[in-house]
Structures are given as C-alpha cells and as structure tokens.
Amino acid sequence: MIRLRGLTKRYGTRCALADVSLTLEAGEIVGIVGPDGAGKTTLIRSLAGLLELEAEEATVLGYDLRADVTSLKTQIGYVPQAFSLQRDLSVMENLRFTARLHRLPASELATRAAQLLARTGLTPFRDRPAGALSGGMKQKLAVANALLTQPKLLLLDEPTAGVDVVARGEIWALLEEQRRNALVLISTSYLDEAAASDRLVYLDGGRIVATGTPAELRATVSLELYRGWGDDPRLIARAARQLPYVEAARATGRFARVEVRAAHSPGAAQVVRALMALPGAGVRFAESTPIDMETTLLALARANGRKEAQRSP
C-alpha cells in the first residue's frame, strides 16, 4: 500500500526527511515514533500527498506522490495534529459536510454516523458545535470523521496528544477495528500506544533508524533493566548511579529503575546482589526485569546521539 524509496523532503537547506525507504501493507497499525523534530509529521504529511518531495519511488495506494494526488486524497483518512474541523458546525454537521465532499449517499451517512458516534460516546453531543467540545471529544470527532468513508489508509498525527485515557481507549478500539481492512499509521508519544502497535517506525533526524514489531525493537536494545524496591526510591536511584556499570537510574513510585549496559554487565545475579547491598539505600528487594517500551525508546534516542539543541523543529 505504501512504497517509499529514497524519499527526501527539504525545507530550504534543512532536510526534514532524508532517504526514507519504507514498504507497508494493509492489516496493521503502524506506530510512528521518535524524538520531537524527528520528521514524524513531515512523513505523515508526505504520505497524505500534501508536500512536494524528491524520491526514487513514492507510491501510496498505487498513486505516485510526485504526480497528481487529487484521487489519492479522496481515499485516505487524515487527522492532522491541530484540530481542523469546522468549529462553528455541530458534530453531525461536520460529518455531513465530510460525507458530501466524498459524495456519500445519505442513507450510508446516517448508518455510519450513528455507529461512529455511538462508539465514541458522542451521540448525546451530536448537535453541539465542535468548537465547544472538550479536548478529548474533539479528537474523537476528528478520528470518527476520518473513518466516515471507510478509507483504505488512515494517517493520524498524534491524535491522542492531551487526550485522557478513557477517550484514548475508545479511539484505539476504533483503530483496531479498522486494521482488518486498512493500514493505520499513527504517530504517538504514549508508551502504551507504541507497545500496542503491530509495527513501529522509529525516526530520528529525518531518517528511519529502526523498524520492526515492538518485540523486535526491544531486542535491539543492548541494555539490561533492573528494579530496586524500597521505601525511598530516590535514594536508591542516587546510590545505584555510583555503581560503575550503571548507565542510568531513576526513581518512580516504589522502585528505582536501573539500566546497565549489557557489554559492561557483570551478570544479572551480581547486579541484583550489588543493588541489595547498596549502602544506606534501604533496598528491600531487587530484580532483573524485561526491557520495556520506555527503555527501548530512550535507548534508541541515546544511541542516535541526539543533539536536540542544534536541531530546528
């Protein structure tokens, strides 16, 4: 559905996307992840046919992104980062507006709209102006609107930023349903959404640094993760940083998460013993624990030697 080879997008002298190659097929939720300014939005906008670009190959749903993309745009659902529906129109009027643009028959609009509003809990708000909805409801409407015509490709740019967990769950359930017949691309900074994606594309500095299932990305991390449980995790984190092989340590809740570079590790049993024996830290129990999404993304960010301050957004 998506075939990119050597895709590059320049803004003046700045390269927002550099030599991006990517092939994606239907039936998956693909999470686009990476640091701020990595090129996530530029990639999504490119795929939506909104940007002029250079590439050896760039086709989406069989349309060449470098040629006329008018027909492509009728076949994708796109949710940009900023809320872009009509604020003065009601929820239902917005859906009707989209339906007319796509020449959706009235009967189909009625059925689809009823389903989507019910699934997003927006039915009681169908007559409320979109501008008067809460942040979470606005985003649910934006996603419902993009799904109205049952597009084969959904492009969603951080649709859940600033959205509460219940509304995020409703949005995610809708996307999982779409996956059966469509390709869903979503950029996100939530760890649980990245972990729930079928495939991840990790961008940094405009380049694709890693792609794979969440498990495949985890497997690339050359760190070991430990947890030291105790009454004062901040104290444990500070003490753990003194161990020569500890890369980073941070307190969270009841434990300190401690990262050890695998190449320097003396072995899990010895690290656990060393954590238990940290002087004055009050470690009550220490364990080795599987690499999680937070560590995976942090490790990818570090491995790519981020020089964020020098980079423009």
Binding site: D36, A161, L191, E294, L297, L298, E308
Partner: peptide, 10 residues
Amino acid sequence: TAGVDVHSRA
C-alpha cells in the same frame, strides 16, 4: 509534558 517525547519527559 503533553506532546513531548519520552527522552525530554524523563
């Protein structure tokens, strides 16, 4: 931290 990446959030 809305819309901020995991590295900056940490």
